[in-house]
Simulated assay, not measured.
Amino acid sequence: MRHISVVLVLFLAMCQTAPQDQTQEETPTNSDQTMAPTRLIGSVQVLDETLTSLVAPDAQLEVLAEGFDWSEGPVWVSSGGFLLFSDVPTNRIYKWMQDSEFSVFLEPSGYTGTVERGGETGSNGLTLDSEGNLIIAQHGDRRVARLSTSVLEPQPVYETITEQYDGKRYNSPNDLVYRSDGTLYFTDPPYGLEFRMSDPAKELDFQGVYSVSPNGTVQLLESTMSRPNGLAFSPDESTLYVANSDPERAIWMAYDVLPDGRISNGRVFFDATELVEQGLPGLPDGLKVDESGNLFATGPGGVLIISPEGVHLGTINTTQATANCAFGGDGSLLYITADMLLLRIQLLTKGAIL
Rank of each mutant, 00 (worst) to 15 (best):
R2L: 13
H3M: 08
I4N: 01
S5M: 12
V6P: 04
F11M: 06
M14C: 11
C15S: 12
Q16E: 00
A18G: 00
D21F: 11
T29V: 10
M35W: 09
R39T: 05
R39S: 08
L40K: 12
L47A: 12
L47I: 05
E49C: 05
T52Y: 08
V55E: 11
P57T: 10
A59M: 10
L61P: 12
E62L: 13
E62T: 06
E62S: 14
L64N: 07
E66L: 07
D69K: 15
S71D: 13
G73P: 02
S78K: 13
S79E: 15
G80D: 13
G81A: 13
L83R: 00
L84F: 12
D87V: 07
N91I: 15
R92V: 03
R92G: 01
R92L: 13
F102Q: 14
S103C: 09
F105R: 08
L106E: 04
L106Y: 13
P108L: 13
S109Y: 06
S109D: 04
E120V: 11
T121E: 05
G122C: 04
G125D: 08
I135Y: 04
I135N: 05
Q138S: 02
G140Q: 08
R143N: 08
V144G: 04
T149V: 01
V151D: 12
E153D: 12
E159I: 00
E163M: 14
R169V: 07
Y170A: 01
Y170F: 14
N171P: 11
S172D: 01
N174M: 03
L176W: 00
T183G: 01
T183V: 10
L184P: 09
T187C: 04
D188G: 03
P189Y: 11
L193H: 06
M197R: 08
L204E: 01
Q207Y: 14
S211W: 13
S211R: 14
G216V: 02
G216L: 01
V218E: 00
M225Y: 12
E237V: 09
A243C: 14
R249C: 10
I251H: 04
I251P: 05
W252V: 11
N265P: 13
F269M: 09
D271M: 07
A272N: 00
T273P: 05
E274Y: 12
E277L: 04
Q278D: 00
P281C: 03
P284A: 05
D285L: 10
G286Q: 07
G286N: 06
G286W: 01
L287T: 11
D290L: 01
E291S: 07
L295P: 01
L295A: 06
P300H: 05
G301S: 04
V303D: 06
I306W: 09
G314A: 04
A321K: 13
T322Y: 07
A323E: 02
A326N: 07
L333I: 04
D339P: 11
L342R: 02
L343W: 02
I345W: 01
A352Y: 15
